[in-house]
Design a protein around this nucleic acid. Structure first.
Lengths: 107, 107
DNA sequence: TGACTCGTTAACGATAGCGCTGATTATTGC
DNA sequence: GCAATAATCAGCGCTATCGTTAACGAGTCA
């Protein structure tokens, strides 16, 4: 329902998650990323498009060489995912609610 | 690399994420989950198998009626995912490192 | 025992995702 | 202008995944 779907779909692929890990060390041009994950530039370009569509990364026009597209991480989807994760983990926080839920659902 | 791959693959499907959200309110039998997501029991059973394989859920033998399999959330994969998320978000924590990375990579 | 329910497994058709090669656009430097 | 480079787009097979129906063990109750 939320955009968390798109975020998780983007992170599902191991290649894309590796790209995220690579970008943790700083911005990288697309070609360098393709070489790092041992993949043809067109294949990685598709992955980058998915990551862009999900808002996980952002392509800046490289200042020095305009042919290079420097990719950078964007924080929003990750904070949204963390918010959802916190909600899920609240399940164990309210351990005393394990019987409260039974009552609420009337079992 | 890690088992985070399996976790994210399991969470990628919207149906499976909805199951997780449903289980936040407490354990549910498989049939009730299938009805909640408007899906045939076999289809949901496959999703539950994926969630089980990833360790996100656990099937307990229902005490009252042994035919029912009550599914419950398991914490481990979520804490592992949170750990990875924290690593990624550390990228913005060290904002001053944006120039440090340039130096390290010798651009 | 026999009818019924719960859940899973098996087999099938349809769809979507992945990675490749080849072509296209934009930019650099001679 | 022209060759070379960076990145994306387009088209093509391939595999995996998803959901459905049908068949199968397991458990309940008369």
């Amino acid at each position: 329902m939320n955009d968390v779907d798109a975020t998780l779909a983007a992170l599902a692929d191991p290649t894309r998650r590796k790209v995220i890990d690579l970008l943790r060390d700083g911005p990288r041009p697309a070609g360098e990323l393709a070489q790092a994950v041992q993949m043809s530039p067109p294949a990685l370009s598709r992955h980058l498009r998915v990551l862009r569509a999900g808002g996980l990364v952002q392509a800046e026009a490289g200042g020095e060489d305009a042919r290079l597209r420097l990719y950078t991480l964007r924080p929003e989807p990750f904070t949204a995912l963390q918010a959802w994760l916190d909600q899920v983990q609240a399940f164990w926080a309210e351990q005393l609610g394990s019987f409260k839920n039974h009552v609420e659902r009337g079992r």
